[in-house]
Write a protein that binds this DNA or RNA. Structure first.
Lengths: 190, 190
DNA sequence: CGGTCTCTTGACGGAGTTCAAAGCTAGTGG
DNA sequence: CCACTAGCTTTGAACTCCGTCAAGAGACCG
């Protein structure tokens, strides 16, 4: 819970009684590597904050292989927002890449919470504004870079993270095949 | 201003005096087709709501050609969020695709406004939550579909919008060349 | 009606995929 | 703590989607 409270205080001010309310309205979950928080087709009923570990959001494409859309590291929120907003069937899976500690706010609890603690509206607005900025940036790289450039950019920007995940996940996230990633690595190491 | 107020009322409740405050803190701008609201390298000092018309967000890639990241139609917000959040140099251009009526909230006014009218925090949080959901969906299509499938999906989903914009913009938004779009159209009309 | 955008056509080339198979690594149970 | 196995990574060859270039046809605006 520590990271979570710190994170809130980075963006707004929250009182001790409000923290207590928050604690009673959230669930802290420990999950193992490869455990699923959400499956395609289910209704996504919670928003997940990564206290520790790493989650991924992905779907299965027509050819039957996994396509990763997003990773969430410590201090990031992750959910299938379409499903979460509209209570529609999820289009994505959410899975633990490593053993994780997750803080979950259930959909119905969130509505109540935001009424009881209005400053959380500010917190979520700011967090979403940053996440949205990141997604604009992401699109810029996707459109502007070749696969090789994407790979170089990503490994230079997040060297530590690249060590944390298997290569096939990196390939999937960057939008190419594990075979091609292997070819790139070989080429670039010479 | 009508669309704007209606849009706010779809997500939260705003009082008459609050509307007056809002009116005095925003600027309504009329711009002509091809006018620019933001250039790469400038600091983006406003968030733009499309009351009427259509905007596009794009950048110039290494080869010197325009890459469109996003369109904004009526009732959508558009800005370079990275630049807007951090007062850093913009990575994008914002341009009118058609003659437009735009409502602009300046960066510093927005901070004041959100303090004076707390319900706007809820409004922006919800709008961003929807925009973020749309961007997750966008990524799913980008990763999951071939160029041909992207084209078919887009034209089927937004036939009216496809009529509103030149083909080279559609090609740019979908991430391919006008030449290939032309080839696709020919092939698919047979 | 003249000039500048926009769209089309076709030839060619290359980045990245697919498939199949072999080598490697790490986790698990005995 | 070792051995076995499933899953991950590498290799290479064939193929294909889509970009590039260049040139011409059409459309729209002043």
């Amino acid at each position: 819970m520590d990271n979570f409270i710190k994170h809130i205080n980075k963006f707004t001010t929250i009182s001790q009684p409000e923290i207590e309310t928050l604690k009673s309205a959230t669930k802290t979950i420990s999950i193992k590597k490869k455990d699923l928080l959400l499956k395609e087709g289910e209704i996504c009923r919670a928003n997940y904050f990564v206290e520790k570990g790493c989650l991924r959001l992905y779907f299965i494409n027509e050819k039957g292989s996994e396509q990763i859309i997003q990773f969430a590291l410590e201090n990031w929120w992750l959910t299938d927002y379409m499903s979460f907003n509209n209570s529609s069937p999820a289009q994505f899976y959410i899975q633990a890449v490593e053993d994780c500690t997750i803080i979950a706010i259930a959909r119905n609890e969130q509505d109540k919470l935001l009424t009881e603690i209005p400053t959380l509206e500010k917190y979520f607005r700011k967090v979403l504004q940053i996440a949205y900025a990141a997604s604009q940036n992401r699109l810029k790289f996707l459109y502007g870079y070749s696969k090789e450039e994407s790979y170089l950019h990503f490994t230079n920007s997040f060297p530590a993270f690249v060590q944390r995940i298997p290569q096939y996940m990196l390939a999937s996230y960057l939008g190419f095949t594990p075979e091609y990633l292997s070819e790139l690595r070989k080429k670039l190491s010479q």
